[in-house]
Amino acid sequence: MHEVGIMESALALVQRHADERGASCVHRVVLRVGALSGVDPDSLRFAFEVVARGTRAEGATLVLDLVPTLVYCSSCRCEFAGDRGAIFTCPQCGDLCGEIRSGRELELSRIEMS
């Protein structure tokens, strides 16, 4: 359950931005979460509720933008979308590919506040 710690970092960042802008209420927090980031969206949502309690972000909407996996094939020098599963096969040459170009993201991307 490292999602709680990750959400603490997210909300610390949110508070800092809210302080800088003199905002008193946070309405929406948007995170980018890669399919291979190793965090579980449901656990993140749960952690958000727990960690936001008593802060300016309590009651805010948490939006998780899921970042799809992009895989590189070194034989074809092409990128392709990794499917939902765990095995990434190049659609052109059929090789198994292990070079992940995106999909590990875990970022704060937008805050809406007032």
């Binding site: 990750i6 970092s9 960042l13 802008r21 905002a23 309405h27 970022e107 704060l108 991307s109 506040m113």
Partner: peptide, 17 residues
């Protein structure tokens, strides 16, 4: 009057530390 909601775009890794 409603306050204009303030939107801040950031791209900060949550694992930066």
């Amino acid at each position: 009057a409603p306050l204009t909601p303030l939107t801040v775009q950031v791209h900060t890794s949550l694992l930066a530390k």
